[in-house]
Design a protein around this nucleic acid. Structure first.
Lengths: 100, 100
DNA sequence: GATCGATACTAAGGAAGTCTTAGTATCGCG
DNA sequence: CGCGATACTAAGACTTCCTTAGTATCGATC
């Protein structure tokens, strides 16, 4: 029941090799006091961080912010991979897509 | 000033050929009273709708919800087009991406 | 096995945001 | 002009998040 944001946060943290929710938040620049509770609330889906907060977390794991709102696993995968392409590859991909 | 969500809402409304913010919201199932103000606040970026609300609006314009959080225009375009592919085409696309 | 630190989580109130109400301004049209 | 439709804004009601305080679990160390 964690909600999609929590699920994606969990995946992103694991992928980036961050050892705890706390470190995830600290690296994003959040103040330490009460952070454990806050992060937990995001991960469990109790509360929803707004886009500004998601952007800070997304930057830590070098992932497009919209990834955290994506319910479709295939599309999430696409967003992830797109984020790690260089500009030439992005053009190739969009060209391929146009011909489908 | 408008924020990315407002910008994407505007684009999506235009693309879907919806004549007003009000109709956009009504089709999404929101109650009529005060809706004009609400929609305007979303469009101008004064207030941020949460993901549940974005999902209802996204369904109206047949667009993945994460599109509305996407700041990169290229990626937004990719998300849009991905949403209109059939399953076979999606597989082709992901296969192409794997070979990049 | 007891203790300690680190981690994840929850409850409850204070803080900050959204939603509703009410109203303004603009535009096109009869 | 007068009217309806549209987009927008201000301010309070209302809802949600953030902070404080505390619980529970797990490993490691003694």
């Amino acid at each position: 029941m964690g909600g999609i944001i929590g699920k994606r946060l969990k995946q992103a943290q694991k992928r980036a090799g961050i050892s705890s929710q706390m470190k995830f938040g600290l690296t994003a620049g959040f103040v330490e006091s009460g952070l454990s509770a806050r992060m937990s609330q995001y991960f469990t889906g109790k509360h929803q961080p707004d886009l500004q907060i998601i952007k800070l977390l997304a930057a830590v794991v070098k992932t497009p912010a919209c990834y955290f709102y994506c319910e479709d696993d295939q599309l999430a995968d696409l967003i992830l991979k797109f984020g790690s392409l260089d500009q030439a590859q992005k053009k190739q991909l969009l060209a391929f897509l146009a011909k489908l």
